[in-house]
């Protein structure tokens, strides 16, 4: 009986938390709509968020993209000719870089770097009663703290995905020249003949969804801190864990929708 009661209590808590999260997400979307009409409120926060989340992650993002693109190029150019299917290398490169790994790895990087930072920062503000101070002076914490981070993470995610594609598809070419010299015109021609707008839009759609997940989950976990400073790292861990799970689930769903 006690087990059943515990299960019921846990289910009710989860349902309540889910409803609270959905309500939080709704408020974020609503305030995002108003953000551009009163941009002065969080403009500087938005710029700083894009700077930290996007620009500062560009280096690691570029290195990952070049490395993965080069690996696919090297493996493909040595393996596929054995089956007489050299032309498939470009398709594989595009599917892996543009459609799958580009948005996914970028989301992981942003979650690891910015998700934890956002959750920790907001949790610290809660512990320090800064949120109460904002509310006391009439500032909506969601409008001033969450929306700029939400937009910043989403924009950074989209922009970093574009860079990931650029570095993954073109930057790897430089590395491949060492192993298998190929004329740039031939490489670009074959690559652009294979690449479609649908591939690019697929990657950007995933980037948009992943950006929303990372920003909402991180801010939600930051605000979930109550009063103890020990809750702050827990909020960071939860933000990363929840974001990873939701990103993978969203990736599967978006892929299924696109290929259905």
């Amino acid at each position: 009986m006690a087990i059943i009661s515990a299960l019921g209590r846990a289910a009710r808590t989860k349902a309540s938390g889910l409803l609270y999260g959905l309500g939080f997400f709704y408020n974020v979307l609503k305030e995002t709509g108003r953000f551009f009409r009163r941009a002065q409120v969080g403009y500087k926060v938005l710029i700083m968020q894009i700077l930290f989340t996007g620009y500062e992650a560009l280096a690691i993002n570029a290195i990952m993209a070049i490395a993965i693109g080069a690996a696919i190029n090297v493996i493909g150019s040595s393996l596929l000719p054995q089956f007489g299917q050299s032309q498939l290398m470009y398709s594989i490169l595009i599917i892996v870089i543009t459609r799958e790994l580009g948005p996914l790895l970028t989301a992981f990087v942003i979650t690891a770097r910015s998700g934890t930072a956002i959750a920790t920062q907001l949790g610290t503000m809660v512990v320090n009663h800064e949120i109460e101070a904002y509310m006391a002076v009439g500032l909506n914490p969601i409008s001033y703290l969450v929306v700029p981070r939400f937009i910043g993470v989403v924009v950074s995610m989209l922009v970093l995905t574009v860079y990931f594609n650029i570095f993954g598809l073109l930057g790897s070419f430089i590395v491949v020249q060492v192993v298998n010299p190929t004329p740039i015109g031939e490489y670009l021609g074959a690559l652009m003949s294979t690449l479609t707008v649908a591939d690019v839009l697929s990657g950007l759609t995933k980037a948009l969804v992943f950006g929303v997940i990372v920003s909402v989950v991180s801010t939600y976990q930051g605000f979930a801190v109550n009063r103890a400073s020990t809750e702050i790292p827990v909020a960071g861990i939860k933000a990363v864990g929840s974001s990873f799970i939701l990103i993978i689930l969203a990736d599967v769903i978006v892929t299924l929708v696109q290929y259905a």
Binding site: L58, V155, V159, Y163, N165, I166, V200
Partner: peptide, 18 residues
């Protein structure tokens, strides 16, 4: 950072179209 990304995106779309 954003303008360069948009430029790259536009160039890619144009190259794809071409």
């Amino acid at each position: 950072f954003i303008i360069v990304a948009l430029a790259f995106f536009a160039v890619i779309v144009v190259l794809i179209g071409a």
